[in-house]
Write a protein that binds this DNA or RNA. Sequence first.
DNA 1: GCCCATTTTTTCGAGCCTCGAAAAAATTAA
DNA 2: TTAATTTTTTCGAGGCTCGAAAAAATGGGC
Lengths: 408, 408
Amino acid sequence: MTVGVRHDDLRRRNRAMVLAAVRRLGQLSRTEIAAATELSNSTISAISADLIAEGTLVEAKAPEGVLARRGRPQVALGLNPARASVAVVVLTLNQLWATLVAYDGAVTREETTRLPTLTMGRDALVGAVVDAIEKLASGGQPPARIVLAVQGITDAGGTRMLWSPITPHADIAFGPLLAARFDAPVTVQNDCNMIAVALKWRWPQRYRDDFFAILLSDGIGMGLMQKGQLFTGTHSSGGEFGHMIHRPGGALCRCGRLGCVEAYAGSYAVVRAAAGGGENDAPPADIPEAEIEALADRARAVDGPERAAFMRAGEAIGYGLGSLFALFDPAPVAVVGPGALAFDMLEQPIREAIAQTAGGQHSGAISFATEPDEMPLIREGSAMTALTALDEEISAPVAAASARREVA
Amino acid sequence: MTVGVRHDDLRRRNRAMVLAAVRRLGQLSRTEIAAATELSNSTISAISADLIAEGTLVEAKAPEGVLARRGRPQVALGLNPARASVAVVVLTLNQLWATLVAYDGAVTREETTRLPTLTMGRDALVGAVVDAIEKLASGGQPPARIVLAVQGITDAGGTRMLWSPITPHADIAFGPLLAARFDAPVTVQNDCNMIAVALKWRWPQRYRDDFFAILLSDGIGMGLMQKGQLFTGTHSSGGEFGHMIHRPGGALCRCGRLGCVEAYAGSYAVVRAAAGGGENDAPPADIPEAEIEALADRARAVDGPERAAFMRAGEAIGYGLGSLFALFDPAPVAVVGPGALAFDMLEQPIREAIAQTAGGQHSGAISFATEPDEMPLIREGSAMTALTALDEEISAPVAAASARREVA
DNA sequence: GCCCATTTTTTCGAGCCTCGAAAAAATTAA
DNA sequence: TTAATTTTTTCGAGGCTCGAAAAAATGGGC
């Protein structure tokens, strides 16, 4: 049950700390690493020598146009891009985005493929992912890790996609299938969780330990950072904000249930409501983005059913956030995805709704930021997820590394 | 930012592991501790010698009627009750429960005081807590730690009570006040969180890493264990399940807002609804338990407004749980407090409501257990919270301990 | 009763790891 | 060219854990 700390763990952890510092802060001298990790210079000297010998870190040549001070110049250490590479695949409705990322985080190769995800067979879908990764890796070193980001629900272990709106097929074990094919660890991740990870990397001062990332798109998703950790469910990717119940017995949701937040705030729900249809009408599928923008323009111009639809969407999101704040406490919110383009209409009803809830006590202090383009975030978050996992893996084999060094 | 692991941490952590193993599993021989912690016998020998020399552990004399095997008999180590004691104070409506607990977890002294919490002044309330602890500690060693459990919201740091239904006074800094008076660390904890802690200690196989403890009383509270850790908000004790919004603009809650779960499921809400009053009537205060039992009996006997009130309560709880499950995934639920006595009427509407939600996918697998008496759990959870914090504190001073040993 | 088998616990030396201090290295300023 | 300065490495000390061996403490069998 409770497991003691062995002696080898110490080195492993400190190696991990060094890698984490370099990954987060970029090129750092040994002295700077010592300051960041609070380890002694001698320890950093030893660890970085190991990491350089292994090819994990490299000494940067140019000290950059840094003003030359007196004394021995610092030599910056950086992640060795050639150390390994990771593959990121993002699967969305009718599209597949594949990216190869070097160990230092630089994007090496990118491919985008269109494919009919809603009508494809299960095996064809898996095959498409395999093909994409194969194409990425062709001619280069095989990826050391693979992250597949999907809309929908994944399992907490990251081995399978349990359900996704992009395909009628449920419970696809992408993890084992890809791992067997490419002989590398694979994790399947929820797209919104990757957005949250990316926000933290990209704007660490704004999105530090606690924040909500709400994806407003066809569906409604959420990624949540709590106490510096990505929040996940106990069995699944969790955080299904869009399927919290806003109005019991209310509007028909794409998931088949009634009254979910998404059934009011998903773009299909807005389109349905604006069209004046009953809230239990089957939701329209695959709405072109242009249609929604036209709807938003109309809503801004005229106080008609379109505007009412956006107001109802904002209200649903606001009440949902209020319940969320009752559980997690208020924190900054990032509104991501196409829906962010209509946030000017959503903000007021959202704030009004939150003010009606327990989370509204400090409603003035709740800050919203918008980011309409979600794809770069999903890819960046996935890449960082893969790379930090790789860092952990690289930190482990102390025995192997020191043995190799002795031989040399 | 990222901080490396120093060498001293190693011993400290392993000492903590040893204490945790003995606390969780009871009297253990050195060999058993080694097995539980996965540390070597030699390490356990060294650590336990230190802990015994400090007076933290003691060798148990009687090997109990354990069947005598061949070989050197194991000598069990246990927590030394005289090592320290902790004080637990539970503040509820009109009552104060104080308990002194020895280091091994045995209850040494208990006191219960009645007091008019709703009408008392702020200082009088603090004074009552001080008096209770003074009385507990009189004649013995001063408590090494104090835990104060209260209904309502506390801050995440455990220093203050932000809001409680038992008093009109908000934001009382019990922590600093008591700490200054008794020269010991103090934490202020939410009662439902303490229930969750207690459930985990008392039935570790049933309530392991993930479960919900729902307190059904005058108000509705929740304690939540997620991934083995007590869930708390980022700024407050969090998990205000009772104030998630069940029906936007719905029934008037004790908190002043409309449509909270508690406004349907708190006992005041059930009484109000059963009495046929409007759902926006001011909620009745301080309902005697007998009245509620009579209401429940009536509801069981006749299909009238009383039964409808319980059904509506169950529905609110069920929808709330459904939203909770959408975020955290389904997990076992413990229904604690007086409301558990009416759970026979609540279960069906709860299950029906959950089945209407995203969390209902596995609604058959969701298990409920009831525990009508919440006070023993609150006290036990508070005591274990104090004692495990003390264990951590005791694990730290390695340098001091070994220095002392050298002198001897 | 005595000796042996058996199991627990302690002791001891080896191997790592981190740290502080001192030495070495690599510059700029004078 | 030398002195000052800053970074990095080296070296020895001190801790910690571990495995193996020794010591301790008991029951079983003759």
